[in-house]
Design a protein around this nucleic acid. Structure first.
Lengths: 227, 227
DNA sequence: ACCTGAACACCGTTCAAGT
DNA sequence: ACCTGAACACCGTTCAAGT
């Protein structure tokens, strides 16, 4: 929230940083060129020297967040590396929930080849992990897709179930579920207690275990890489 | 694109239908209260009698699309039912790619209990399938989360790889990949041919097979439902 | 009571005018 | 050559004025 008074020259990094701060604190809608200019203590038009337009600015914010994803490079088993990466990704997304829509739908229908490098880094990294583990490049791509798809799906699921104020959660949930017609939603209404105990980290970890187990079963006949 | 001339009374359904048409043809940004009013041949304010505000209008569009998801109710094996449902969901999403961001991030951080019934119907349906198959309700919830997370993740993946004009695809991909520094993206650059052959339906099907195999391995010790 | 449209407070972006 | 800010063409939403 601290306004960067109009001192010193602006660079892309500080512009994107201020933009991210705005999004984190007030949501995506709050990120307008004008408000960003104000937060920077500059003329709104000053932003245009560091981002071609609003879309490009949003893409920049997404890249900034992706850069927060720490990359572990050691020789741990590939399954452990994937698992660690998933948890790291999840943590970063929970730190910036308002940016997640940008991450998952930002480059929608932008040809893969034209996407900014920052967006492609996770893909390259996972491919590396898998190929070094002995997967054929084509298989690595399939595994990447299954893994990454699941990861993004989980994060979206978790954010949808995430409640800002857990104090109110129980009341809201009960109230909300009761509103649903019992005839149409018998199962959902009975699951209130389980829904309250949602543990995203554990759920993700279990999901990855399931996915890896399934992968193993599928690959052990066609490849000797899987161990 | 046919303008509904100002004849007859407006109802929520026709308003949402016109809104969906606008989104399908010109994207989410094109859906403004004013343009919608114009498409309906009415004063922009007329829309407010059928949707409280723009957000609510977008939620309505999302529900309208979800209603397109056909529900198969027969006594097929639960795995077959899940698989069929995934493909059906995928088809609907590909029919309305511009609406997908609404589906996956629309109700973000809206407590589950307060979400519109239309959004919760798939959850209820899957729970039903699983519980009828013999899963304990709690397990059914976990399976739902893994399944649905994966499904959404896959759809996002597929939409990101989807190219509007396949004619240009190859050129664009080659061009785009060449732009990436070879040192930083060695694996990705080598995978160009595989990336061109992406088959979303097959990829989804394989993914589900993997997931179900993993689920089986995980559940066969703790439950006798899995067959 | 219902409907209409003027008015308000915002937008992104362009571009002429200044330095 | 760079920077500034007025101007344009849009927004969502409110609300007073009409019927």
């Amino acid at each position: 929230m601290q306004a960067q008074e109009g001192s010193g020259r602006l660079n892309r990094r500080t512009v994107l940083g201020a933009a991210l701060e705005l999004v984190d604190e007030h949501g995506l809608d709050a990120l307008s060129m004008r408000r960003l200019g104000q937060a920077l203590g500059r003329d709104p038009m000053a932003v245009y020297r560091h981002a071609a337009n609003r879309k490009e600015l949003l893409a920049g914010v997404a890249e900034l967040v992706l850069d927060e994803v720490e990359i572990f490079t050691d020789d741990a088993h590939w399954q452990i590396q994937l698992r660690r990466m998933a948890h790291e990704m999840r943590r970063v997304c929970l730190r910036h929930p308002n940016v997640v829509p940008l991450l998952v739908t930002g480059p929608l229908s932008t040809p893969l080849g034209l996407r900014p490098a920052g967006t492609l880094r996770p893909l390259e990294q996972i491919l590396g992990i898998l190929i070094r583990a002995g997967f054929a490049p084509g298989d690595a791509l399939h595994v990447y897709r299954a893994f990454y798809g699941f990861l993004y799906g989980h994060i979206l699921n978790e954010l949808q179930e995430l409640i800002v104020d857990p104090e109110e959660n129980e009341a809201l949930l009960q109230l909300g579920l009761q509103r649903l017609p019992l005839r149409e939603f018998p199962h959902l209404r009975r699951l209130a207690p389980e829904l309250l105990e949602y543990d995203g980290e554990h759920e993700l970890d279990q999901g990855i275990t399931i996915l890896l187990a399934g992968l193993g079963q599928q690959l052990e006949t066609t490849s000797e890489a899987y161990t």
